[in-house]
Structures are given as C-alpha cells and as structure tokens.
C-alpha cells in the first residue's frame, strides 16, 4: 500500500497561490473555504523586512486528531495515508475542526455556491444572471465551470451542514494523476509521492534536505513536509562585532 506524502520546496515557491486557486477549481470549493491555503508573515522593520509565504493544506496526519475525535468515523484514514471524509456519515458537529491544530477543515455554513442561485440581472434583459447562466451551461448544477471529476469519490459539491477539506485529490490518484495543486504549481514547488518507495522523489528530497513539518511537537505526524527556505539570500560575510 502506498504511503502518500507531499514535499513543498519553499525556495521554488514564489507565493503565487496558483495551487490554492486551482484546487478551488478542481474540487468545486465554495467561497470562504480554502482546501489549499497559506501562512504569510512579514518579519522585521523597514528597511530590514522580509515577507514569507508558507503554502498549507491538510497535513494528512498519521496520528490525525480529527479522526480520533470524530464521533461517527466520517473522518477516517485510508490505507494510503490520506485522511478522508465521508459526508454521508458527517453530522456536522465540527469536533474535527476544533481538534485539528492546523485549521484546515472547513464547515459548510451555507448552501455551497449561493452566488449562483441569484436570479437578478444587473441590466434587465441585457445581461444574464447567475441562476440563468448556471441553468444554461450546467443544468443548474453548482457553478458553470464545475468540475465533474470531483464526483468520482466525493460529491461534486458538499451540502450545507457537513465539513470538507483537502483529500490529496484522491479522485485523481485513482486515475493515476497527481493532485491538482501539484500539477498547477508553475514553479514545481510541490512534489508528491510514495514514502514506501525507496526511489521515489519524495524519499530522495527528504534525505537531501532537512525537512520540517508544521507543529511537529504535537505528535500529529503530518505527511506534508517542507524543505529549504522561501527567502534564500546572500549577505556579506561578517564576524559581527561587540
């Protein structure tokens, strides 16, 4: 059985967010929910100031607190290491959200894609309306650009009252395709693979660089690793001074 993991190379990452927008697209994620997200930090005082960007997503922890705390086993682990969610068993209690130390789980407070239910045009008879556009293009389902692939393992959109989060694009892995964020990254900053394969690229990179994971001290054992630094930079050699 594969043990899926992702290595994120912060030096290659340019902080563009294409991963997060592409993920939004691939998984029909509603506004306000970010299966792929980021931590941004601005350190220092002008002019000695730097901006840092760390891409984030579900860490697919081996010791997943969300799974441990789920009363219905809606949140569960797959054999390949993915922390998966089953909306049919989800009662919307949101314990997983409180248990997750990474805040990567989101709750559908509203019907998804409510924007597309609006039937008002901005110019009467001249422009369309969200409802009309979706009806004409996609039979009234979700959004006009909704991706049907997502429905292969999860529902195309998740209904109000259940949680949702990154699934390592399990529906793509089934077809032998990499997670969409990995494909979409223009900088090849996300590397995916099987930790159980000795010659996999992820294994190689985790040997070549000292990786870190988010909040390691909590013992969640994330499957998302980070290597190198977002701001590699040279500075003039110095011994400092007293």
């Amino acid at each position: 059985m594969p043990k899926y993991a992702m290595v994120i190379d912060l030096q290659s990452c340019v902080g563009c967010g294409a991963c997060s927008i592409a993920c939004r697209n691939e998984n029909n994620v509603p506004e306000g929910i970010y299966w792929s997200n980021k931590i941004t930090e601005t350190y220092g005082t002008f002019p000695n100031v730097r901006y840092h960007y760390t891409p984030t997503l579900c860490n697919h922890c081996t010791n997943a607190p969300c799974v441990k705390g789920c009363p219905t086993k809606a949140m569960h682990k797959l054999d390949n290491g993915i922390t998966m969610h089953n909306p049919r068993k989800c009662i919307g209690c949101r314990y997983c959200m409180y248990n997750c130390p990474y805040e990567v789980i989101y709750f559908n407070w509203e019907d998804p894609h409510k924007f597309w239910k609006d039937s008002r045009p901005v110019i009467k008879d001249g422009t369309s309306s969200p409802r009309e556009m979706v009806k004409k293009v996609n039979n009234g389902n979700g959004t006009p650009y909704g991706n049907p692939d997502r429905a292969k393992t999860l529902s195309e959109t998740r209904p109000k009252g259940v949680v949702e989060k990154c699934t390592f694009c399990d529906h793509r892995l089934k077809e032998g395709e990499l997670p969409y964020c990995v494909e979409a990254c223009p900088a090849d900053a996300r590397i995916f693979g099987d930790l159980d394969k000795p010659d996999s690229k992820v294994r190689q990179l985790l040997g070549k660089f000292k990786p870190f994971r988010l909040k390691e001290r909590l013992g969640t054992e994330p499957s998302v690793y980070y290597i190198r630094s977002f701001n590699p930079a040279r500075y003039e050699r110095t011994k400092g001074g007293i």
Binding site: N25, D125, G126, T127, S128, M133, P144, A187
Partner: peptide, 25 residues
Amino acid sequence: GRASCPRSHLGLQQVYDPDRIKTPM
C-alpha cells in the same frame, strides 16, 4: 510550457460571468 500563473484560472469565472452582456443593447 506547462507553467501557469494564478490569474489564468480566473478566466473561467470571466467567461461564465453572469454580468456579461448577452445581446446588443
């Protein structure tokens, strides 16, 4: 090549923009 910046994906929201004009006015 295969590289694609973030703004490219917003084209999908543009082409299906409900506020596009649908007819001459």
